[in-house]
Design a protein around this nucleic acid. Structure first.
Length: 484
RNA sequence: GGCCCCAUCGUCUAGCGGUUAGGACGUCGGCCUCUCACGCCGAAAACGGGGGUUCAAGUCCCCCUGGGGUCACCA
């Protein structure tokens, strides 16, 4: 299956009605990867025809989400393009034009039934049939052409009464639905705004898409759009229907399961590449490989290995993938990345701070996100006399009986020359051996004194990162605290 | 309920007629060890059921069951 046409054009067409859902992001990602791999164009189109739900804020969220993820678009908002405009509400003239064409060719008609009338009929049907769904509106205007164009009306598609409509899905093979399943769906509202299927079809045609990929919840819409394509005599793109991303319980992914908006992951300190990796791998595979760089994704992505079964969101695995990506960064990148997060905690640290650079390597092994990294780095940058002690650790390791150890440690730290890990280790280990102490009895009180916590990088490492002066000050303070 | 789609460890998946059914996350042991991690070693863990086709079926076909999607002047 060679899908690398010379002129690949794919699009992502979200409606700006909230945050950009990670399921939608995965669809966008696959399209973007495909475009980048084939050297084609990735188009971003905003489907804002639902006036009640669309907002400018949500549009900004979409754009910001895409930017944060690094899914750049070749055509769309802010960058323009030959097939623009890229907001559906700015393409109303086009929809009118195509609707008129369909009316003229007998593929559509003006319908004067009101929304309320139809709703009543639907209610009556459902009542009569014992609550069953599946009401199909039969418009009395279907075969009339005498309606006044100046009286408010909707435009409906004149769905064939027989036959089948189908396509060869990129992921699933041949799919076909009987036309008798469809009703005369609305193309244009009385106010001139198109409905999804019409706007989408007209845009995909006029924007010359070669592949339309979307969630499989749209599989019911595709036959309708194909009907429009055919009525318009337009060439069909290929269609790919991606499986959904569900929550851990197999139900629709919702807030109660996890953060569903991508930007929430940004705010959680995730890396865009980690998000992309996790999402790519949820529903697509490349042998046994789990971790991919962005570039590898572009090179290795293939529709053939995109699955068809719904995937469940797994926060644990997401975190693991994320941690792997955090570890792919070098110390300078981590330092630069974590600075804003330290700032949020009230710590002003320069990206090239000596202590920051020294501490980052040992701390990052214990972290999956920038938030965790900032937390793990935090105590290194607190003033020596403002360190706070974890309550439980203080109770356990800052007792009167820990004093002698701290005092001896203070002496060794003061005397170490040179002040490096090897020297400190030799000195401290020598002492422990001489006095037949347990390493633990020294290290845990020391850890509390130096970091205020029970968990940290190794003792010698920590001492070196803090430096002699700071280490001594912190040990002194701990001693003072214990002595009350 | 109608229509459509789907079905390998708990989860994501590899498999594209012949495999001891592989990997990853998670889980549980163990090693390492000053804590927490990292790392390393190991274990438990899957082809939903029933019919076919075939010398041979997780792989192909049918039925059942189960899950999901959708039935708007939302997208």
């Amino acid at each position: 299956m060679g899908y690398t046409g010379a002129m690949t054009r794919v699009r992502f067409a979200p409606s700006p009605t909230g945050s950009l859902h990670i399921g939608g992001v995965r669809t966008a990602l696959y399209c973007w990867l495909y475009a980048r791999q084939t050297g084609g164009q990735f188009v971003l189109r905003i489907e804002d025809t639902d006036a009640a739900r669309s907002t400018d804020e949500a549009t900004q969220v979409v754009l910001e989400s895409m930017r944060w993820l690094g899914l750049d678009w070749d055509e769309g908002p802010e960058v323009g393009g030959d097939a623009g405009p890229y907001f559906q509400t700015e393409r109303l003239g086009l929809y009118k034009e195509y609707a008129d064409k369909l009316i003229a060719s007998g593929h559509a008609y003006r319908c004067y039934a009101t929304k309320e009338e139809i709703a009543e009929m639907r209610a009556a049907y459902e009542k009569a049939s014992g609550g069953k769904r599946g009401f199909r509106f039969r418009s009395p205007w279907r075969d009339r052409t005498d309606g006044d164009p100046n009286v408010p009306h909707s435009v409906r598609f004149k769905t064939p009464l027989e036959g089948e409509t189908g396509w060869d899905d990129v992921l699933r093979g041949p799919i076909s639905v009987s036309n008798t399943e469809q009703q005369d769906f609305v193309l244009l509202r009385p106010n001139g705004l198109p409905l999804y299927n019409f706007g989408c079809a007209v845009d995909d045609i006029t924007m010359k898409m070669t592949l339309v990929a979307r969630g499989d919840d749209h599989m019911v819409n595709t036959p309708l759009q194909i009907l429009i394509y055919k009525a318009l005599g337009a060439e069909l793109p290929r269609f790919a229907h991606l499986p959904m991303v569900h929550g851990p319980d197999g139900k629709k992914l919702a807030k109660r399961h996890a953060s569903v908006g991508v930007l929430e992951y940004r705010d959680l300190g995730y890396l865009p590449d980690g998000v992309i990796n996790y999402l790519a791998r949820l529903g697509w595979s490349h042998g046994d490989q789990e971790i991919f760089t962005r570039q590898e994704l572009i090179e290795k992505f293939s529709w053939e290995h995109v699955g068809v079964t719904a995937g469940r969101y797994d926060g644990k695995k997401f975190e693991h993938v994320q941690a792997q990506h955090l570890r792919m960064l070098d110390d300078a990148e981590l330092a630069t990345g974590v600075v804003p997060w330290l700032k949020k905690r009230g710590l002003d640290v320069a990206p090239d701070d000596r202590k920051l650079i020294a501490a980052i390597a040992p701390v990052q092994l214990r972290c999956a996100t920038f938030i965790e990294l900032a937390d793990g780095l935090d105590y290194f940058f607190r003033p020596d006399d403002a360190l706070t002690y974890e309550e439980k650790g203080q109770r356990k390791f800052m007792r009167a009986e820990d004093l002698p150890q701290l005092k001896t440690l203070r002496e060794l730290v003061a005397a170490a020359d040179p002040f490096d890990a090897e020297t400190l280790e030799a000195s401290i280990k020598g002492w422990i051996e001489r006095d037949a102490l347990k390493m633990k009895a020294v290290a845990q009180p020391a850890r509390m004194a130096l970091t205020g916590r029970t968990k940290s990088p190794g003792l010698y490492e920590t001492l070196v990162i803090l430096g002699r002066e700071s280490s001594l000050a912190r040990i002194d303070r701990a001693i003072a605290v214990i002595e009350g």
